[in-house]
Design a protein around this nucleic acid. Sequence first.
RNA 1: UCCGGGGUAGCUCAAUCGGCAGAGCAGCGGACUGUUAAUCCGUUGGUUGGGAGUUCAAGUCUCCCCCCCGGAGCCA
Length: 463
Amino acid sequence: MKRTLIKHVLVSDRIGEEVKIAGWVRTRRDSKGGFSFLEINDGSSFSGLQVVVPGELDNYQSDVLRVTIGSAVAVVGELVESPGAGQAVEVHATSVFVYGYADPDEYPLQKKRIGFEKLREIAHLRPRTNTFGAVARVRNALAYATHKFYQERDFLYLHTPMITASDAEGAGEMFQVTTLDMGALPRADGEIDYTQDFFGKPTFLTVSGQLEAETYALALDRVYTFGPTFRAENSNTRRHLAEFWMIEPEMAFADLDDNSDLAEAYIRFLFQYILDNCVEDLAFFNKWVDEGLLERLESIAGSDFERISYTEAVQALQKADVGFEYPVDWGTDLQSEHERYLTEVAYGKPLIVTDYPADIKAFYMRHNDDGKTVAAMDVLVPGVGEIVGGSQREERHDVLLESIRAKGLPEEHYWWYLDLRRFGTAPHAGFGLGFGRVVQFATGMHNIRDAIPFPRTPNSAEF
RNA sequence: UCCGGGGUAGCUCAAUCGGCAGAGCAGCGGACUGUUAAUCCGUUGGUUGGGAGUUCAAGUCUCCCCCCCGGAGCCA
């Protein structure tokens, strides 16, 4: 008999019909009156299915009464309306097959709530909990919505390399990739001889696919990347991972306003999508994890983002009657506390801050006519802070070259990037969005380590 | 990396001034029951993160180390 996912059973009108389901047991409750209740979840939906197992089954004593939380079972039975209060339908089993038991002395999950920190130590089992099942489904929905959003707008999904010899930002610690024997590094003139390394030169895990994405945007007009990126920073916060997924759209013939429009439309689309498609999971998060979640998601999906310039932001902060730990001066970067004040207190909604001082931003950002600022934009959201960083790119060859030199970057690494400005250059713009931070915001999960299946952080690469 | 808070039973936590290491849940045994975080009775379960020191006596005080969490920096 063909198996049906529980999510489909729950919304079917197959009362009175025979169904087959399979999944993992959440609880078993026995009635000495001669039968047992099994709560079964297969991950297809937040809700599981209650199965009533009659004591008359051949393997009731031998198998069913041995079933405990975590066991994997298949059940065949009749779908009926449930007389109980907790569910609309249930299955009256005519057979129960146990694929695998889970020794309750050893199995670490229980009905009782377990702390997220403990669950990180058993990341291979935590998807079987309500919370992490829901996180996985919402994360999946956000990934699907991402592709849907860009595909519907004629963006081309681009695969950029994970191993790279260039440093996109000109800053930030990178993981080195090498096949050299670390215990016996080849040397030439006292330096490590990278001509003997796999690629013949030092290579690293990418921190961004942006520079490569620009090459395709300047040929195919609109592209986006969606893949893993890596930072070897010793960051120990609830918002940082050493390995995280990033989405980077890049558009040709576009300026900073087009960029802001895209970022706003994308973020609102994401949240509207999960509000429409993850109702049960979001209701769970709203009740148990973050009480204002639904209201916040609806508010962001439904309201226009505020847009201010960096200069205006600095003025607003200087006027604010708040004792900041860090002073606010034009020319220094906004601190976390400043960003939080702007998006959470001053405006109370997502905020796009544009036109930052050139000195504190990356070399590839387009210089404004004022000679001091660049066409950069950050999107700030309440609770998470900076969720998007982007810019219009410098398309003028001489200005870009000057910028590379001014930042002291190795010019020779950027020959192909500069070529884009020598041959058929065109204005273009794009941004990067940290996918984990979106999942964090969308679920209300406090720590980004709980928004990705297997988090990589300093000192932690288990599983 | 810096600052702060932590690490005690499988899990969540308590332990007063340094004085016999405890509870709830889970597990196990039993009772009861269309149950649904079931309930009731009983019961098993400890290298108090690791090491050194002070003391008659250390979960508790001192030092070193490891790990976790929060905030900051860096950033997405």
